[in-house]
């Protein structure tokens, strides 16, 4: 019991703080942060743990979002089933392209993924326009039925649901880091050959990591769909392909809480700055270049050692269990 608490307390603390923030920050902002951070953790995992950079995350986001959207627009009304449909859709798509993509070298991987994002964009905008309603997008807010317990149609209750989902996702990734699988992922990044000598298949490790990460991304897409009540091809535009990468870098690559910290900073900056300068891309581009040149540790990467010191001064034992990074 105590051990379980020690294991969870970092995550619970982080999201507890976010839940508390809900009372003095606008709700849409907090919801956006939650979904976006789930969106980013997949990208962060791929880059930090497996060494694969993907500019194609919007494609997987779109798989999830459109999976949910198609269900809620054409088939049913239950948002929970819709989310499951989105996740399933993302899982299936990732499992189809995964075996092909993970064989590639990391440079080709990035290029192919970005190409995939652009193709999915055109597919949703033009090729499948009959079903996706093209640029107008699918609107199904009124189709979402109210559910007992947590009514996802209301953003305050959606927030509770999203928080629980996020905690579960973070638990999953922390668990993955702890298992031999996490070690294998890191090993494929650092030295492929040696991992093979140990008897593990690079291909399988990468494929599993790829599917887990992109199914998580699809989950974020499904959450977006339910939260916004609409999906348009804009979600997978190439101009937005940088978003998860920027947030990953901003937060600190491969760290557990990097995506959360990065998302908070990024969303806040965007909300504040877009009021002053209309030219958001300019800012994103330069912040990205700046962080890369400044040493790519990111916010959490720089803050974590400092926090660890702070905690260990107070409660040495707890800090060891809670703050792995």
């Amino acid at each position: 019991m105590v051990n379980a608490f020690k294991w969870w307390w970092g995550i619970l603390l982080a999201f507890g703080m976010l839940a508390a923030a809900r009372f003095f920050l606008p709700l849409p902002f907090v919801n956006e942060v939650l979904i976006f951070s789930i969106y980013t953790i997949g990208c962060s995992f791929l880059l930090g743990r497996v060494g694969f950079i993907s500019f194609g995350q919007p494609a997987y986001l779109a798989f999830g979002a459109y999976g949910t959207a198609f269900y809620l627009f054409y088939v049913g009304t239950n948002p929970y089933v819709g989310i499951l449909a989105g996740v399933a859709c993302g899982f299936i798509c990732a499992s189809i392209v995964g075996p092909l993509f993970v064989r590639l070298r990391s440079d080709y991987f990035a290029l192919v993924n970005l190409a995939l994002a652009v193709i999915v964009f055109y597919m949703m905008q033009k090729v499948l326009a009959e079903y996706t309603k093209g640029d107008n997008g699918l609107w199904f807010l009124t189709n979402i039925a109210s559910t007992p317990v947590l009514n996802l149609g209301r953003s305050s209750e959606f927030f509770i649901f999203a928080t629980l989902v996020a905690i579960a996702v973070w638990g999953l990734y922390k668990y993955l880091d702890d298992t031999i699988f996490g070690a294998c992922c890191l090993a494929t990044k650092i030295n492929e050959a040696k991992l093979q000598f140990l008897g593990y298949s690079n291909y399988k490790v990468r494929l599993l990591a790829f599917i887990v990460a992109n199914t998580t991304t699809a989950l974020a897409g499904a959450l977006y769909a339910v939260y916004l009540g609409s999906v348009s091809p804009e979600i997978t535009a190439a101009a937005r392909a940088a978003d998860p990468v920027v947030v990953t870098i901003l937060g600190g690559v491969g760290t557990l809480f990097g995506p959360l910290v990065g998302t908070l900073a990024y969303t806040a900056l965007r909300d504040v700055l877009s009021k002053f300068i209309g030219n958001w891309e300019l800012f994103v581009g330069f912040i990205l270049v700046f962080i890369m040149l400044a040493g790519e540790k990111g916010l959490w990467g720089s803050a974590a050692p400092w926090l660890q010191k702070l905690f260990s001064r107070g409660k040495a034992a707890d800090a060891m269990g809670g703050e792995r990074r």
């Binding site: 940088a242 920027v246 800012f283 994103v284 581009g285 990205l288 270049v289």
Partner: peptide, 13 residues
């Protein structure tokens, strides 16, 4: 790749 993507996005801005 990341840096040049940043330059691209910033340049578009």
């Amino acid at each position: 790749m990341i840096t040049s993507f940043g330059i691209l996005i910033g340049g578009v801005g």
